[in-house]
């Protein structure tokens, strides 16, 4: 009986120790990948900017330190939390925030279940508060008590990239135009939506940045022209809304890259995401236009 108790106690101690140790290792990689360190320029967004902006190249071209905190699937609610989390973690306000937008920024499916992205950062009070509101009590407490349950495969990939300090798009694939045309015909493509809560949160984010005195560049990274033209009226309406929001605040500017790049099909890996070549072109163009603005 004594031996049994020892085994149980030691197992629990070792399990807790492994949780702390492995979690610390994963956190280091993750914080590196999501650049949770003081920087002059902060890029906030989802997979479009994660794949479309090369942090190192942008830093080199701007001559300013750049942090890239982009998460696949992050909607407007998540991005506001990301901004607050960044400032809370680093204790530093960036001079400028590059915030990626698109005609699909207010589509509801983007934000579906996206709170799960933040489980690894549960140690932060901002994130904990966000998760308490959105996650189920079972999930919340499981992940709170057992840190190793907070990670998914995407986060493991981010940890490895963080340790390798690699923010480059790894895909050199080119979009299959024939297959996408078929999908357009069938109507099985990502539709433009106007979720009121997402639109309200977008406005709240811009207002919050205004109050914080942080300049914001809304960057519309390019989507494939075929996709933009699939719902022309809704596209114009969504971009018009973003433009009007940008005009509302003096510290906000909109930089739309669709006009120049969306017809260059060789830059896309799929209709929404850029490939490596596209990442270099988009980052270079963005850096050049920002440099002009900064002058």
């Amino acid at each position: 009986m004594k031996e049994f108790c020892k085994v149980i106690a030691l197992t629990l101690v070792l399990f807790a120790a492994l949780n702390l140790m492995v979690n610390a290792i994963l956190q280091t990689g993750l914080k590196r990948y999501y650049c949770l360190q003081p920087a002059e320029v902060l890029v906030i967004g989802h997979s479009m900017s994660e794949m479309g902006i090369d942090r190192d190249l942008l830093e080199e071209r701007l001559g300013l330190s750049v942090a890239k905190y982009c998460m696949n699937g992050a909607g407007t609610a998540d991005r506001l939390v990301m901004l607050k989390h960044y400032i809370e973690t680093t204790g530093h306000k960036p001079k400028m925030v590059i915030y990626d937008v698109s005609a699909r920024s207010f589509s509801l499916d983007l934000a579906d279940n996206s709170h799960a992205l933040f489980y690894p950062f549960m140690a932060s009070p901002v994130i904990r508060e966000y998760l308490r509101r959105n996650a189920s009590p079972k999930d919340y407490w499981t992940k709170r008590l057992i840190p190793l349950t907070r990670y998914d495969d995407t986060r493991f990939g981010a940890v490895i990239r963080g340790y390798r300090r690699n923010w480059k798009c790894s895909s050199s694939r080119r979009v299959d135009l024939h297959a996408f045309s078929e999908r357009l015909k069938q109507g099985t493509f990502w539709k433009i939506g106007f979720d009121e809560e997402s639109m309200r949160l977008f406005d709240e984010t811009l207002a919050w940045l205004d109050v914080q005195g942080i300049n914001c560049i809304l960057v519309a990274l390019p989507c494939l022209d075929l996709l933009n033209e699939a719902q022309p009226e809704l596209y114009a309406k969504a971009m018009g809304h973003i433009r009007s929001e940008a005009e509302k605040y003096p510290n906000v500017q909109l930089h739309d890259m669709n006009g120049e790049l969306s017809a260059r099909h060789e830059l896309f890996r799929d209709p929404i995401h850029l490939n490596r070549e596209g990442q270099i072109v988009a980052t270079s163009q963005l850096a050049d236009s920002l440099k002009d603005g900064l002058k």
Binding site: V7, L10, T11, L14, F15, A17, L18, N19
Partner: peptide, 9 residues
């Protein structure tokens, strides 16, 4: 104990 802890982790 280590074996069980590793598996649980």
């Amino acid at each position: 104990s280590l074996k069980y802890a590793v598996l649980l982790s």
